[in-house]
Measured scan of single mutants.
Amino acid sequence: ETFPLDVLVNTAAEDLPRGVDPSRKENFLSDEDFKAVFGMTRSAFANLPLWKQQNLKKEKGLF
Results as ranks from 00 to 15, higher is better:
L5C: 09
D6I: 09
L48G: 00
Q54L: 13
S30Y: 02
Q53N: 00
D31M: 04
M40W: 01
T11I: 11
P49Q: 02
S43K: 12
A12W: 06
F38I: 02
P4F: 03
P4T: 08
N47Y: 07
E1D: 12
N10M: 08
K58W: 11
K52E: 14
R42Y: 05
D33R: 01
K58R: 13
L16Q: 03
L8I: 07
T2M: 09
F28N: 07
P22M: 05
L16V: 06
K35M: 15
K57F: 06
L5V: 09
G39R: 05
T41S: 13
F45P: 00
E1Y: 12
L29E: 02
F45A: 00
K35W: 15
E59A: 11
N27E: 14
N47Q: 13
F34T: 00
K60P: 00
N27T: 10
L29V: 03
A44W: 04
P4I: 04
P17T: 05
N47L: 13
P4C: 07
T41A: 09
E14P: 10
E14K: 15
A36R: 12
A44V: 11
K35R: 13
L48N: 00
R24C: 13
G61M: 03
K60F: 07
L16F: 07
D15R: 11
L8C: 06
E59S: 09
Q54T: 13
L29D: 02
N55G: 11
D15M: 10
V7K: 11
E26D: 04
T41K: 05
L50D: 09
E59R: 08
K35N: 14
D33V: 08
V9M: 10
V7I: 12
V20T: 05
M40K: 01
S23A: 14
R24V: 09
D33W: 06
K60D: 01
F28K: 03
P17E: 05
S30F: 01
T2C: 10
P49K: 01
E59P: 01
P22I: 08
P22C: 08
D31F: 03
S23F: 13
A36T: 12
E32S: 09
K60L: 11
R42A: 04
P49H: 02
R42I: 04
P4W: 03
D33H: 04
F63K: 08
A44D: 14
F34P: 00
S23Q: 14
N47H: 13
N10A: 09
V37M: 07
K57L: 11
V37W: 02
P49I: 02
P17V: 04
K57Q: 05
T41P: 08
L48W: 01
L48K: 13
Q54A: 13
L29T: 01
L16H: 05
V20H: 05
E1P: 15
E1C: 15
V7R: 13
L8G: 05
S30Q: 02
Q53H: 00
F38P: 00
A46V: 10
P22L: 04
F38Q: 00
A12C: 14
L8M: 06
K58H: 09
D33I: 06
T11F: 08
E1R: 10
D6F: 07
V20Y: 05
K25E: 04
E59L: 12
K58Y: 10
A44Y: 08
A44N: 09
D21K: 03
L16W: 07
V9K: 11
T2I: 10
V20F: 06
K60T: 08
D6T: 09
V9S: 07
A36H: 12
T41C: 08
L62D: 06
G39I: 01
F3P: 03
P17K: 05
S30I: 02
G39D: 09
R18N: 13
K57C: 09
N47D: 14
Q54S: 09
S43C: 14
G61F: 03
F3E: 04
K52R: 12
D21N: 08
F38E: 00
G39M: 07
F45L: 01
T2H: 11
N47S: 14
D15S: 10
N10W: 03
F63Q: 15
R42H: 04
P4H: 04
K60I: 06
L50S: 10
K35L: 15
S23C: 15
L48D: 00
L8H: 03
F45Q: 00
A12Q: 10
K52H: 12
F34C: 01
F3C: 08
K35S: 12
L50G: 09
E32T: 12
L5W: 08
V7G: 05
F38A: 00
K57M: 08
G39V: 02
V37K: 02
